[in-house]
C-alpha cells in the first residue's frame, strides 16, 4: 500500500492531522529511558499517549489505522515537517512542543466550535492539548529564564525550528479554519511566551521557496525516513503479529 485514501476532503484532512499526531507521538516515545528526570519521562509518555489516541481516531476516519501507520511509504505521509524533526537536546524537544502544541490547541478549539466531522474529537482533544501547551510554556520559561547554559540552548532550539513553523498555516483541504487568523493568534502567543522567557523571537523566514515546508504534500526531511524505518520495522518483519 503506497497511496493513502484521500478520496474525500474529510479523509485527506484526517490523514494530515492524524499523521501529525502519530509522528510526534513516536518522536516523544523515543525519550523513554532517556529523559532527564523520571517525572519528565512520565510527562512526555503521557503526552505521546494522548497524541496516539488522537491519531487512532483520525487515521480510522481515513482508512485502516494499522495499514496507514505501518505500511505506507514516506512520500504518502502528510504530516508537517516540524513534528518529524529529531528530538535533539531537551531544548529542541521543548521548542518543538511549544510551536506544535500551541498550533494544535488553537486549531482544535476552532474545530470544536464548528459542526464539522472533526468537532467530536476536537472537543475532547482540546482539553488534553491545553495540558500539553501548559507543559511546553512552563518549560520554555524555565529553560529560557534559567541558567546561562539553558538560555543559550533554548535560544538555539527556538531559532533552529522556526523555519518549520510557517507550514502549519497553509490551507489543508477539509479543515475549515481561517489560516490567517490562526497564524496571527499563534504568533502573538508564542512571541509572548518567548519574551517572558527572556528569549529572542527568531528573525528568519518561517516558510518560502527555499525554506522547509511541504510535509503536507508528502515531501519530508532526511531524518523522517529513518524514524519510519524504526516505527514500521516490527510490523513489516512480522506481518499480522500480535501480543
Amino acid at each position: 500500500m503506497t497511496a493513502p485514501s484521500t478520496d474525500t476532503p474529510t479523509a485527506s484532512a484526517a490523514l494530515a492531522l492524524g499523521d501529525d499526531a502519530l509522528v510526534l507521538s513516536h518522536r516523544l516515545g523515543e525519550w523513554m529511558g532517556h529523559a532527564p528526570v523520571l517525572e519528565e519521562e512520565v510527562a512526555l509518555a503521557n503526552i505521546a499517549l494522548d497524541l496516539l489516541g488522537q491519531a487512532r481516531v483520525l487515521l480510522s476516519m481515513a482508512g485502516d489505522e494499522d495499514q496507514l501507520a505501518y505500511l505506507r511509504e514516506e512520500r504518502a505521509f502528510r504530516n508537517l515537517q516540524l513534528v518529524e524533526q529529531p528530538n535533539g537536546d531537551f531544548a529542541h524537544t521543548i521548542a518543538r512542543q511549544l510551536y506544535f502544541s500551541t498550533y494544535q490547541h488553537l486549531l482544535y478549539a476552532r474545530l470544536a466550535a464548528g459542526d464539522g466531522p472533526f468537532a467530536p474529537l476536537a472537543a475532547k482533544a482540546v482539553k488534553e492539548t491545553a495540558y500539553h501547551r501548559d507543559h511546553a510554556e512552563q518549560w520554555t520559561l524555565r529553560l529560557g529564564d534559567g541558567t546561562e547554559e539553558s538560555h543559550t540552548r533554548m535560544n538555539r532550539a527556538c531559532a533552529a525550528l522556526w523555519r518549520f513553523t510557517g507550514e502549519m498555516f497553509q490551507p489543508v483541504e477539509g479543515v475549515d479554519v481561517d489560516g490567517g487568523a490562526l497564524e496571527a493568534e499563534w504568533l502573538a502567543s508564542v512571541e509572548d511566551v518567548l519574551r517572558r522567557s527572556t528569549l529572542d523571537v527568531p528573525e528568519g523566514p518561517r516558510s518560502g521557496a527555499w525554506t522547509a515546508g511541504a510535509g503536507r504534500q508528502g515531501l519530508h526531511t532526511e531524518p523522517f525516513g529513518r524514524m519510519l524505518a524504526e516505527m514500521q520495522h516490527l510490523h513489516r518483519s512480522h506481518p499480522g503479529a500480535s501480543w
Binding site: 490547541h105 478549539a109 482540546v126 482539553k127 491545553a130 495540558y131 501547551r133 501548559d134 510554556e137 512552563q138 520559561l141 524555565r142 529564564d145 534559567g146 541558567t147 511566551v193 517572558r196 527572556t198
Partner: peptide, 25 residues
C-alpha cells in the same frame, strides 16, 4: 463550565511567582 485549563506562568530565576518554589499553574 468546562473548557481549556487557564494557562499562566510561574516563578523563575528573574521573575517572582505567587506559588514560589517550583512555580505552579
Amino acid at each position: 463550565a468546562s473548557g481549556p485549563v487557564p494557562v499562566t506562568l510561574g516563578a523563575t530565576r528573574t521573575r517572582a511567582g505567587t506559588g514560589g518554589g517550583t512555580g505552579t499553574a
